[in-house]
Design a protein around this nucleic acid. Structure first.
Lengths: 138, 138
DNA sequence: TATATATAGTTTCCGATTAAACAATTGCTC
DNA sequence: GAGCAATTGTTTAATCGGAAACTATATATA
């Protein structure tokens, strides 16, 4: 068997692609995790912390503190679940919704640029493949 | 234009895929960045810090500290460049090479499992697409 | 060749992440 | 329903990460 180079390894390629994209978004003023969290809540408000952590592949302590900061900034808020008082349900505030809207725009502009130069059809195929890959490995 | 879900966003899909894979490797006893660093050095020993940071998409201060730890563990070593004394050239030690060999095995076993269940041909296509995507966005 | 500018890395300071321990609540079993 | 295990989330202590400042060396310009 021939020696495999780093570029033949999915783990390396995913790390590289993720970091470059995430950095570019940071440069556009978008924190990837904060944006993803707000976006999940805009799609499914009232998620408990555990589900949120799953959806974002964050572990719970990290999420707790991310949420702490975003509560400080009044982007999201906690509501204790009356039916199960261990649970906390998370919601997007109006301020969060406004922030999300502006960041959506930046993310979509950036992705349009990136995907355009990569080729829109290929980009679509790449996303489809990643989506099913993620389902496999979770 | 219809509302786009998180799963239509490349940045989200890459973050998810990367985190899941990276966690699974951590569980197998492989630190993704350390492994990637050792692997780069095994392919191109003597790289200066700046080139190394580029290859791994790490920023320089982060790399300095990663290297500090790995020097502590005697996995890699620094050699000042005599021709340009600002530069430091990095090399893999024998211990590092042994560690790399054992981690290569784990990574390859893990990827074989993951890629097998995803479909080997699709996995190959995914890697090819990611590789050209990365070239585009860098 | 003296001075300015650019390059390569490291250090510092602060914020973020993790694993482990903890607290609170719920569900199960006898 | 009393006691025990499981679930949900937070806190703590230690490590890690990033932006900005700093050091050392090299190059360009006058």
């Amino acid at each position: 068997m021939a020696e495999r180079s780093l570029n033949d390894h999915l783990s390396h390629l995913l790390a590289q692609a993720n970091r470059h994209l995430s950095r570019q978004l940071t440069a556009e003023g978008v924190s990837l995790d904060q944006w993803r969290l707000m976006k999940v809540l805009s799609e499914a408000g009232g998620l408990p912390m555990g589900k949120l952590a799953e959806e974002l592949a964050l572990n719970l302590p990290t999420l707790t503190k991310l949420v702490d900061r975003m509560v400080q900034d009044a982007l999201v808020y906690r509501v204790p679940d009356p039916a199960d008082r261990r649970k906390v349900r998370m919601f997007l505030s109006d301020k969060g919704a406004a922030m999300l809207a502006s960041q959506n725009k930046r993310v979509e502009e950036h992705e349009a640029k990136v995907e355009g130069s990569y080729g829109n059809e290929d980009a679509q195929r790449l996303k489809t493949m990643l989506e099913s890959f993620i389902k496999q490995i979770v």
